[in-house]
Computed example of a mutant assay.
Amino acid sequence: MVISLVKQVRKERPLIHNMTNTVVMNFTANGLLAFGGSPIMANAKQEAPDVTRLSQGLLLNIGTLHEDQVQAMILAGKTANEIGIPVVLDPVGAPATTYRSEVCRKILDEVQPTVIKGNAGELAHLVGMEVETKGVDSTGKGDLISIVKEVSEEYGTGAVCTGEKDVGCIEGDVFINETGHPLLGQITGSGCLLGSLLAAGLSVAGDTSDKILATLNYYGQAAERAASRPDVEGPGTFLPRFIDSLAAEVEHAG
């Protein structure tokens, strides 16, 4: 499934509308291109719906919020729901401030995501469960299966909790991805990029659970291959090798 998904993404080159945070925009664009998708970033509310209509997937990432962007995200999300393209919501740092928490509620009141992707602390916060956090990062683990099940049921969506193991849930069915590498946690934006790749993977034909798991698996494999390179000495040398690995021929994927 991994090879067929990546080949299909590279054949179709889906245009993904990334409404994401300013810290990670360049990394997200380059990583999505390496995976096989095509990035576009438009945060103005005056054009967000029109850009979404041109796209095959939408990422809503609340990493660096401002009110105009929130309004644009809601307009884009509603448009995505109308035309039937996948929406990935990344509630970055949702437990960190009251404002972030309120924004998540506002988006979820008006937009139906295909998948909510976040760390344990972010997802737990959306359903009133407690997991220790520090800033926008989760420092606790919690019962990941219970967390994704609760999020999926409460919001009628897929849920993916990222971490040492990625745990997902679609309509009560739980799946686990064990690929990955600790160096992903030492570079800024690895989770944000994953949200964009999930939107690309979800844009092609196939079973939703299969597409999510295949994307997670390929992403983790790419990290493992990059980290195993003899010239990788830490996060600084890992990052460009990771982009290269995402762009590798998919025959190298398991």
Rank of each mutant, 00 (worst) to 15 (best):
L32V: 05
S38L: 13
K45C: 08
E47K: 13
P49I: 10
P49W: 08
P49E: 09
P49G: 04
D50S: 14
V51S: 06
G57D: 00
G57C: 11
L59D: 02
N61E: 08
I62W: 00
G63C: 06
T64M: 13
L65F: 09
E67P: 00
V70P: 00
Q71H: 14
I74F: 04
I74C: 09
I74K: 00
A76F: 02
K78C: 10
T79F: 06
A80C: 11
N81P: 08
E82N: 11
E82Y: 05
I85D: 01
P86N: 12
V88F: 13
L89S: 01
L89M: 12
P91T: 03
V92G: 02
V92L: 12
G93H: 09
G93S: 08
G93Y: 07
A96C: 14
A96W: 05
R100S: 04
E102P: 00
C104D: 02
C104A: 15
R105H: 15
R105M: 05
K106W: 13
I107P: 04
L108H: 05
L108N: 04
L108I: 03
Q112S: 15
K117D: 01
K117H: 09
G118L: 11
H125S: 12
E130R: 14
T133D: 07
G135I: 11
G135F: 13
S138H: 08
L144I: 14
I145Y: 08
V148W: 02
K149W: 09
K149V: 07
K149G: 04
E154R: 15
G158F: 02
C161T: 01
G163P: 06
G163H: 10
D166N: 15
